[in-house]
Design a protein around this nucleic acid. Structure first.
Lengths: 204, 204
DNA sequence: CCGGCACCTATCCTTTCGTATAGCCCAACT
DNA sequence: AGTTGGGCTATACGAAAGGATAGGTGCCGG
């Protein structure tokens, strides 16, 4: 059973490799960034399973997943991450990932997950995926209208009221009104603070 | 040789534990957050070496390090992190850490580092600590003066020129000048955009 | 000593923001 | 029917921001 493990954290990479080889009897190939993973797939591929770190040089978000899926000739490719949330996990699965492995999972579960995915089954830890939607759409965005969101987006790009007005095909005064409303809803004192709050909240 | 390993990523924790036990013959105790680590030290301490993840529930930055150093009765406590930069590493060492382990290090190096630290020696990967100050203070901050940084900080908090002036004990006109200069240096069209750029860059 | 530089201040002016008040349109609700 | 509310517009005005120009300090190195 051939497995490719790509992670830029050498410590993580080596220990997981050692663990999977010892406990699972798999044959591990490792790569320290995406281009190395690509090279490995082109040279020794396809693998029975490819494990890609989500935050790794060259991954470019989930675009690396797409590339890897293509390179690995239909065999499963899974995403690992210690920080990504279930939104990313869901996207990865939607884009054809063979699974998603948060680094908070137990090593034994990893073993099962790897065996599972190598047979073509999709795997993602249920407790992770069904975790409460920690402010999935942010409490902030909830109370504002579509227009207000559009205006807020403009604010976050540092546009003037006039520019936002042009972009939305509205009058400048209308934008002013929306900005005032936004400031009230976001508890901001001015446009700049509103933009910062929106950015802090992860909007845009 | 008793070692306490605290990391909230179960996968990382288990594989490192397995590795150190197998390859180094150490006796590993694990904890999944800081309070668990604290409990372990109170119950079974002191350990010959304590390894703490830098980003872990309850760590509170390096305050957890201070607490752990006290709890472990003079025995070494080291910080591990996959993301922290050398600034954090330096601070950790300054505050008495027995070492700093980036998760990018090789597993074999880990073994050596652990043996090293358990004997009371300080350890930190030389290549990591002497790595070029990869935008230590961000390319943006490099070209701006102390005053400008202070003003930019005010901008990022959504303050008006007048408020920034009061805070820095300067005249409002002076702030305007700095804002203009900042906008030029940051390639921003106005204060809001400057603030967003600063935030994007991770400043403040 | 003097020029350069960073920092600060001043005056003047235009544009933009922020707020307020009032009215229009339209869809939804009772 | 009426009315209620969201979204849009209009006018107006003071406050703030932004830009330009001209100075003023203090400090450092040629």
């Amino acid at each position: 059973m051939k497995i490719l493990l790509a992670d830029d954290h050498e410590l993580v990479r080596d220990t997981i490799k050692a663990f999977l080889e010892r406990e699972g009897g798999f044959a591990l190939t490792v790569a320290d960034d995406f281009s190395a993973a690509r090279a490995a797939m082109e040279a020794d591929g396809p693998f029975d399973l490819v494990l890609l770190d989500y935050t790794m040089p060259g991954m470019d978000g989930l675009n690396g997943l797409d590339a890897a899926l293509e390179l690995n000739a239909g065999q499963p490719v899974a995403i690992m991450s210690g920080t990504a949330d279930k939104t990313v996990a869901q996207q990865a699965l939607d884009r054809g990932a063979g699974g998603f492995l948060p680094k908070t999972m137990a090593a034994k579960s990893l073993l099962n997950a790897v065996r599972f995915m190598a047979t073509g089954e999709k795997y993602a830890p249920l407790d992770f995926m069904t975790a409460p939607d920690v402010e999935e759409v942010h409490p902030l965005a909830a109370s504002m209208s579509e227009r207000e969101r559009q205006v807020l987006n403009g604010l976050c790009r540092g546009l003037s009221n006039k520019e936002i007005a042009r972009e939305l095909d509205l009058q400048e005064v209308t934008i002013k009104l929306h900005v005032k409303t936004l400031c009230r809803k976001l508890d901001a004192r001015n446009r700049t603070q509103a933009a910062m709050i929106a950015k802090d909240a992860g909007l845009f």
